[in-house]
Design a protein around this nucleic acid. Sequence first.
DNA 1: TCATTACTCCTTTTT
DNA 2: GGAGTAATGA
Length: 740
Amino acid sequence: MSPNYFSDLNEQQRAAVMHTEGPLLILAGAGTGKTRVLTSRLAHIIDQKKAFPSNILAVTFTNKAAREMQVRIGNIIGSAIEGMNWLGTFHSIGAKLLRIHAEAANLKSDFTILDTDDQLKVIKEVIKILNIDEKRFPPRYFLSQIENWKNKGLPPEKVAKSEPDIIGHEKSVEVYSSYQKRLSRLNAADFGDLLLLPLKLLKENDGLLHKYQSIFSYTLVDEYQDTNSVQYLLLKLLSQRNLNIACVGDDDQSIYGWRGADVNNILNFEKDFSGAKIIRLEKNYRSTKNILGAARSLISNNKDRLGKELSSHREDAGDKVKIKSLYSAEDEARFVSDEIDTIISKNENLNNTAVLVRASFQMREFEDRFIINSIPYRVIGGPRFYERQEIRDVIAYLQLVVNPNHDLKFERVINTPRRGLGDTTLRKINDAARRDNISLYDISKKIIDTDELGASPRTQLKSFISMVDSWREKINKVDHITLTELILEDSGYVAMWENEKTPNSESRIENIKELIGQLSEFQSLAEFLDHVSLVMDVENDENTSKVNLMTLHSAKGLEFDYVFMPGMEEGVFPNQRSLDEKGNTGLEEERRLAHVGITRAKKYLFLSYAQNRRVYGNYTQSIPSRFLSEIAPEFIEEELIYDAYTQQYSSFSGKNNDQKNYTNGRTALERLQAIGHFDNLEYDDLTFNQDINISPNQRVFHTKFGYGTVTDCDNDRIEVEFKTGKKIVLASYLELVNND
DNA sequence: TCATTACTCCTTTTT
DNA sequence: GGAGTAATGA
């Protein structure tokens, strides 16, 4: 009688599943069976016929989490899962609402979703029109302002006009509102709009609000600690009526503060939803005692916590956490790949192994090494398929065909491949469009019958427009795959790559073929394009054995037997900018991120750091991350470091506390030379340009100081005037620059 | 119109 | 060491 989804649950988990009515907060530490509770709970509600699948709102943070939940619930409730229309990320659910009620938000239901690139382009346009100095206020600055406001649920009209403490505030407000107008004319919405506009609709329209309040009889939210204000307000509005809202979260895993996530949402849950029940899941089923101990000791350094102690359910203490110091970042990659080789030799499936990095630029080192050692790997959330140039071009063509008024895409494809419609022509078209206040496409149609353009651009433009029109005619006549192939053929886009004989033009064509292959999974172009903008990742083949390489952020929610966390260095992790901008708050978030990383590991965890790393192309010495010394020693096994220069063994903790001793006033390269350790440097760094002929007034380039002019020479000691002042440097570090 | 070159500023994390 | 940009030349 008792349904089988109860069978494996512990007491707290079971309580969380059973408590269906009224607000519920589940504080679930890492590895405490959170996903199982969520899926069982949903299955329980459906199984007990408390609600139809279509009456459940289930929100996750990533598409991957949504997919996984769908599969797991499907396994319990079978085909009834088909009815779960409202399971998805906040953004996909927002998009769905917005498409249904687009008109009310001043959009058409076939609006396109902008990516960051598009957003920046729009902002640049706006900046130009408003006559703002791009040097003083870079577009990115405005973008982050706008995003902040959107995260807080503030449309332009709700943002206070003046804010004396913040320079450029008024400008930002101005840019925001122009930006928004431009978006609506483009029939486009950005990611923030997918949440902000639905919120606005629900707030301003009682009928609509009541409708959705009664549709959603149960609401369930995953990763609640990462909700920002708009998301919180949306949830609150929608669940106000029946209050059947269950949120799952872990304050120790809150790592999206920079995206507006507000931990207070979780801290204030009891206040916001009166009578809320709180259940803690503290039994960890994932990690060994040593790994868990390491995680616990690290996170205990945070002050801002709800307080929650994870206890290990596993009997074995397991191996200690290994900490390894390496000479350079290259060495570090070699170390990781050697360790992976031994994992391979144990016949383990590599899918159980992950390399987690703080920032994506760190991935390159590992990819290079993995390729050399032929270790199979997959990058999760890295440079994505849909972000490749050729894919974006093709998608731009498709979007233009679906929505010809999409000026940004129009601009992107009008001269790709080359059609003799360059900057000058484009500027003329743009000016005319602004004058008549219509889209580039519309103005082009007019202009081709006047003599505003020269003869050649005019015929070129004419044929381009008629090409687009011919595709548009076919939208409803041929299927979307045929249409895409036709577009690629007519436009000469594929031919362009075929004619280019560079090494990667072939792989570009392969990528385009892959894209066409994916089209078959969708019913229409519009459906495909929506998928592309919302779900930026391509499904990875999970059946082949590959090492997982990803950022710590995208590792949340995953688990692996073997976890490597390289780059444990001050500045890298904790990230310097995070510290600079947010001080202690930033540090605590970095620490939570480290905690997330450590708790991904089930059996083996390797932390490592490089003593020297290239930053912006220059070798820089690094200090071991403070996080290393925050982990209680009893969980750690450290390999002492032999420093060839000081000829001493030392531990990371000593270095961390006494960096002066370590820096010693020399540059990295000088130090390398002193100890004769060259093998890890690249050839270029060691090529001494002894035969170059340097004389005063010569323009030169120095890898550290940049460009400068020679003022005096004394054999190989050269005095150079750099932007930052005069310096005497060795000739071997200089590169000649033409200066006629 | 397009290709090349000199130079500046970078880089956090994602839906 | 790499992307983006403004200036310059063909």
